[in-house]
Design a protein around this nucleic acid. Structure first.
Lengths: 121, 121
DNA sequence: TAGTCATATGATATCTAAATACATATGATA
DNA sequence: TATCATATGTATTTAGATATCATATGACTA
């Protein structure tokens, strides 16, 4: 079920317009982070536990856990507990297709963004 | 054509890994702005010129133009010049389906984000 | 059951980047 | 040439993110 409008998504839940926009800000803000993008990118291949992610990214445990907390909060990833390990997987339903779409967009506009052009009148 | 990986998008263009992630940061950073989200939301309905957008959002001309410049740069919108007016339309190919996907994601997770839950163990 | 491994959470300080505001430029039309 | 519609440049303020450190928890292990 696709919503016609950003606001429809949460309005029914009783949130005000400004609050809904805040949720979108938190959601997109989650992606304005190289380390979180790297995690997402890793998880596109397979599920991984925290130690594996740390190893791949050569990053600190607290940093990785903080990033994962934010990703979880926004529904980018899901956790699966396996003994003392926690395996993270990408949200297949929405985030996987989302990232595919964005990659396809970026394959066209990445260059434009990086070159910093303002106009092409 | 869908890319398997964030990096594939721009690697062929000769950009380094860090640069590619920067482009993604700029892209998503564009969406961490209530005013820009409002503009996108407006343009989902129909194309509009700058004055019309100003009127709808009750915002200053310079503010709106700055926002539009950023949206243009990242490929969210396209311009169509009509005399002294400039009509903006949403990028139909990628951004429209993208926003639909995100809305559908948010209809599920918006509440979770707004409540600020960290965990649901 | 104490220890340790895997992971999460909290708090704060620093740094970056974004919103704001103001000045000015440009291109089209009347 | 004056005015309308819009774009661009830049400095200031301010919010938000990253980094770091300290600590907590839950599970397994000797």
């Amino acid at each position: 079920m696709i919503n016609k409008n950003i606001l429809h998504a949460c309005h029914e839940e009783g949130f005000k317009e400004g609050e809904v926009y805040n949720a979108y800000k938190v959601f997109f803000g989650t992606l304005v982070s190289e380390s979180r993008l790297r995690i997402i990118n890793l998880l596109r291949k397979r599920k991984m536990n925290v130690s594996e992610i740390m190893e791949e990214l050569k990053d600190e445990q607290t940093a990785v856990s903080h990033d994962l907390a934010r990703l979880r909060k926004c529904g980018f990833v899901e956790v699966e507990i396996d003994g003392k390990f926690r395996y993270y997987r990408l949200n297949e339903k929405t985030i996987k297709p989302l990232m595919d779409l964005i990659d396809s967009h970026m394959s066209k506009y990445c260059v434009h963004i990086l070159r910093g052009n303002k106009h092409e009148r």
